[in-house]
């Protein structure tokens, strides 16, 4: 046969080139999935829109925003964060399926950059979530939500949301590697929903029993939501200590999650053979 064997990269620069090329190949694989399964992508993108309609119009009438203000203005930052949270399920399902099918093992047996499996996944999932966020912003604008902050604040709010998604990415990868099968998706959904609802995303924590409200305020999701509400100039930011420090906390929480779950994922990936 005439297929030439490409040389093994020896220099750091060559290795980096391989890592980038391989990461892009893995990303492309996911982007090709979208083309093959546009329905799946549409459902994933439109599900949060459905939730906006449900909460904004069906349930929202009964919810008072502290300090006054429009409920849908209050809701949208919460929904943006929820969209990031749902990303855990996307990541989990993809990682768990690959691990169960042996695709991850095949990748590990190839002469490719080991990091590419993860960087490829991260790029694809972050792209997916950025698109999801764009759809939600469009949806928000359609139901009367506005960012009242300046361009810098608005961009910072979007960056904070994506940072939260990056933190959830590692949780998704870790759980996906741990589960070794996509069947446990239901279990992850059971985990995701209480985390989503036990926060200030849908209702002000002031309406909850005191201890539950405190718990909800210390939910990492809530810090991002509060920070984003403040940056967008949306109502209902609250006045507890953690709410007052929402902006640094919206950086600190994801940083902490990444500090925990990134090494855990790497360790789990290396020990996949167990």
């Amino acid at each position: 046969m005439t297929t030439p064997v490409p040389p093994i990269p020896r220099t750091p620069a060559a290795r980096l080139r391989w890592a980038l090329a391989d990461g892009w190949t893995v990303t492309r694989r996911d982007l090709t999935h979208w083309r093959h399964r546009p329905g799946d992508v549409a459902v994933a993108l439109l599900f949060p829109v459905l939730m906006v309609l449900m909460f904004g119009y069906l349930l929202g009438g009964g919810i008072a925003v502290p300090g006054g203000g429009d409920y849908r203005e209050f809701l949208m930052p919460g929904m943006f964060a929820m969209t990031m949270l749902f990303g855990i399920e996307t990541t989990f399902a993809a990682v768990a399926t690959d691990a169960a099918r042996g695709v991850t093992d095949r990748f590990r047996s190839l002469p490719m950059a080991p990091s590419a499996v993860v960087t490829g996944r991260a790029t694809a999932d972050m792209t997916h979530s950025t698109l999801g966020l764009a759809v939600m912003i469009g949806c928000g604008l359609a139901v009367g939500w506005r960012s009242h902050g300046d361009a810098g604040d608005t961009l910072l709010a979007i960056a904070l949301l994506l940072l939260l998604r990056l933190a959830f990415l590692w949780i998704g990868i870790y759980l996906g590697l741990l589960a070794r099968g996509p069947e446990s998706l239901a279990a992850v959904q059971i985990l995701v929903w209480p985390v989503g609802f036990l926060s200030n995303a849908f209702v002000p924590t002031a309406t909850m029993p005191a201890w539950l409200g405190t718990l909800a305020e210390w939910n990492p999701l809530s810090s991002t939501v509060t920070a984003v509400r403040a940056l967008f100039g949306n109502p209902g930011t609250g006045d507890s200590w953690i709410a007052q420090h929402a902006l640094p906390m919206a950086v600190a929480w994801p940083a902490l999650l990444i500090a925990i779950f990134f090494p855990l994922s790497v360790r789990c990936y290396r020990r996949l053979d167990r």
Binding site: R29, H36, R101, G102, V103, D105, R106
Partner: peptide
């Protein structure tokens, strides 16, 4: 080396 494992380690969605 080439490895063909116990499962068909393929992407089901791609052709």
């Amino acid at each position: 080396i080439g490895l063909v494992g116990q499962n068909a380690a393929l992407d089901e969605i791609l052709n």
